[in-house]
């Protein structure tokens, strides 16, 4: 099947700007359907949940009809891609604020420590972790030692270490991607990660 025939649905939950995610798929020849409608989310052939911003707002949105729709979609076994907050939302709770995530995977979201230092230079590390970093991975969606663009202050800690599909190093070794069955989610932004990000989205479309 060519890329132009593939369908992708982007969950529009009002959590940040969808502009660049949509454009990334357009560049791959795919026109995305953008929706917040629970039934449309359930029917999606392939679903992307991008998000930036606060966990509290995210939890509020998920406590409505959208949360069950996303869980139903994931249960269908069709490909799911979570990006940034869309990754954190798969877990139970966050240090950032009260509220419940989807709880698809047991685990929590924690903040980078404020007193981290670079092991090599001794420089104080800034939070948010913003910029390009390398991931350590053997997962087929990613490239070993690939560079991706991150903007975040929080990261997920899955209860099950087997979920971790990639890690990255910033003061501490943190979880940069999780994967299980049809679910793949990354803390970085493939839509901002130039060719490496586009290749990830291509692989997602090929699933």
């Amino acid at each position: 099947m060519s890329a132009t025939q593939r369908q992708v649905t982007i969950a529009n939950l009002g959590l940040g700007n969808l502009h660049s995610v949509v454009q990334s798929f357009v560049r791959l020849g795919v026109t995305a359907t953008i929706t917040a409608d629970p039934d449309e989310l359930r029917r999606a052939e392939r679903l992307v949940f991008p998000g930036q911003g606060a966990f509290r707002e995210c939890a509020e949105v998920l406590s409505g009809e959208v949360g069950p729709a996303l869980r139903d979609f994931i249960a269908t076994g069709r490909p799911y891609l979570g990006i940034c907050l869309g990754m954190q939302a798969l877990f139970d709770t966050s240090e950032e604020s009260e509220g419940q995530g989807l709880g698809v995977f047991p685990g929590r979201v924690v903040r980078f420590a404020s007193d981290m230092h670079d092991e090599a230079t001794g420089e104080r590390l800034k939070v948010p972790h913003m910029g390009w970093n390398q991931v350590q991975t053997t997962h087929p969606m990613l490239e070993p030692d690939g560079w991706y663009y991150f903007v975040h202050s929080y990261y997920v800690v899955p209860d099950d270490p087997g979920l971790v599909a990639a890690t990255s190093l910033y003061g501490t070794r943190f979880c940069a991607a999780v994967a299980r069955d049809n679910v793949f989610a990354c803390q970085f932004h493939p839509e901002k990660s130039h060719h490496a990000g586009a290749r990830l989205l291509e692989r997602f479309l090929a699933q």
């Binding site: 670079d118 090599a120 590390l125 972790h129 910029g131 390009w132 970093n133 390398q134 560079w147 991150f150 190093l169 910033y170």
Partner: peptide
């Protein structure tokens, strides 16, 4: 670790 950035 985080890379230094080049911004044209």
């Amino acid at each position: 670790m985080l890379a230094r950035r080049i911004i044209p």
